[in-house]
Amino acid sequence: MSGHSQHTVQSLYEGDQSKLYSGILQHHTDVQSPESKSQIKRIWKVFWILLVITVAEVIMGMFFSHQMPKALVAFFFLALTILKAGYIIAVFMHLGDEVSNFIVTMAIPITLFIWFIIAFLADGSFWLFMNTTSPTR
């Protein structure tokens, strides 16, 4: 009895997996197959990319970032951060393997965040400007 109701709830929430997934996200059986091995190879490749980027960032932060113009440092670190985030989302979270409608559904709200960041940082530096030029201070 309980086994039966569990099955109903499960199919309600998980659906028939064969109808849900295609491509890499499909369910396979042979873990030794060439496509399985190439997928594992891709995962390790991304690991090395992430590691190299992080080491480059740390070396930069340790030795060079203090002698460079602030804007250049910020651009360098933020570009590498977004590159790392892209690899994690696309490969590790498999978003790159999803259908494009789903990718767009996730990407649009996040990109609105860019404006949010610009607006608040601009507000912060305006505050500093007002504080340091105000005659009462």
Binding site: I24, L25, Q26, H27, H28, T29, D30, V31, S36, Q39, I40, I43, W44, V46, F47, L50, L51, T54, I88, V91, F92, H94
Partner: peptide, 21 residues
């Protein structure tokens, strides 16, 4: 950071193994 990236790799390998049952 290295520990966390590494554990992310092992996680995605677990997911991969899951795809193949």
């Amino acid at each position: 950071t290295f520990i966390l990236i590494m554990s992310s790799v092992t996680m995605v390998l677990a997911v991969h193994a899951g795809h193949y049952g």
